[in-house]
């Protein structure tokens, strides 16, 4: 038997080149996020050159105002997808929550209370999804699909026609436009409380994901749920939290959207779960779980929003092609992620 070698492990003595390669490799998972950012800038540039009036305060303001709800949804989906799950119920939650909210508000409820109820509707549905997934081993997409049906169906029982908020309702305050910079003509930098809420949500999500044990457990679950539980982490509690958070954020998105539009309908939010998934994925969140960035999801949501603006401006692209383009972009990013992963495995 050979004697024990007493020198310390030789592992860290890698060459500088090797270390650089490792660092590049370790950043490879953020490549899709970078790609999304580049695409966003290219889209802006293309829009400016082709149609003009893109690089201006009003366009940017509108981009945020019109997509605040999508940003909030995408943040929720980012949590879910990082953990390796999926939530298809968010669009239906918006429908149920906003129809419910408008009806309650018009029945004379206090605006604050209505908002609370709207958010809690989302939390409840998220909780049910979480329980089904965690305790009854239902696949996430089936459980949340069922919740999507349930939400959409309940919303339809309440009303099948658009319901309008009273002009005087306090909820509408969240949609008020506040001028921050008074530009020439209508070119103002405008913000709404809804946008502020979205930004707050992004900040809070960032802190939770990066600075709390719960957040880190979300990543660990996405890396390997089995390992996470063998490491003794609170897997059960965290998974419930993830779905409750996603539902709650959908409730908040419903508040923001209703405040902006001033009305609600049972068909509101059809397909938004897919937009939110696309936003998260475009922003660099790995659909198989384990990697993802809240800020990436914001970029992803803005890319989708800008795409709609450009298609409207262009006019020659039939609006019906939008879903093909969304689907195509989603596919490209999923394939890009696969390529990056298989490169890393080598």
């Amino acid at each position: 038997m050979s004697a024990a070698i007493t020198t310390p492990p030789a592992a860290p003595t890698v060459s500088r080149l090797e270390r650089l390669r490792q660092q590049l490799l370790s950043r490879a998972d953020s490549l899709p996020t970078a790609a999304a950012l580049v695409i966003f800038v290219l889209m802006l540039a293309y829009g400016e050159i082709a149609y003009g009036r893109i690089f201006q305060l009003s366009t940017v303001s509108n981009l945020f105002i019109n997509n605040a709800h999508l940003i909030i949804l995408a943040v929720g989906l980012t949590f879910v997808i990082i953990s390796g799950g999926i939530d298809l119920s968010v669009g239906a939650i918006i429908a149920l929550s906003s129809v419910c909210g408008v009806i309650l508000a018009n029945a004379g409820w206090n605006a604050g209370l209505v908002i609370l109820v709207m958010i809690l509707i989302g939390s409840t549905i998220g909780l049910v999804s979480g329980v089904l997934i965690q305790y009854f081993d239902v696949q996430p997409f089936i459980a949340t699909l069922a919740m999507m049906f349930l939400g959409r169906g309940l919303a339809s029982m309440l009303s099948t026609v658009p319901v309008r908020l009273d002009e005087a309702s306090g909820i509408l305050l969240l949609g008020t436009k506040i001028k921050l910079i008074d530009g020439p003509k209508v070119n103002d930098l405008v913000i709404t409380p809804g946008v502020l809420i979205a930004l707050l949500v992004v900040a809070a999500a960032f802190i939770i994901l990066h600075r709390t044990r719960t957040g880190r457990t979300v990543y660990a679950i996405g890396g390997s749920e089995h390992s996470a539980s063998l490491m003794g982490l609170a897997v059960v509690r965290t998974k419930l939290f993830i779905y409750v958070a996603s539902g709650t954020l959908a409730g908040i998105a419903a508040v923001v959207y209703t405040a902006r539009l001033g009305s609600a309908q049972n068909i509101t939010g059809i397909g938004w779960e897919l937009d939110a998934i696309a936003a998260a994925v475009i922003g660099g969140t790995l659909l198989t779980g384990g990697f993802g960035y809240v800020l990436g999801a914001v970029v992803g949501a803005l890319v989708l929003g800008l795409m709609n603006v450009l298609i409207t401006r262009d006019g020659s692209i039939p609006p019906e092609a939008t879903t093909i383009i969304t689907g195509g972009i989603l596919l490209i990013f999923v394939l890009l992620q696969r390529a990056v992963i298989s490169r890393q495995r080598e």
Partner: peptide, 25 residues
């Protein structure tokens, strides 16, 4: 009942069936 409300009933059926299929139950 409005036909657009049928999804809710279907959801309840799905949930019930998933529960019946689950190991815990």
């Amino acid at each position: 009942i409005s036909s657009s409300a049928t999804p809710a009933f279907k959801a309840i059926v799905i949930i019930a069936l998933c529960l019946l299929q689950s190991q815990r139950v």
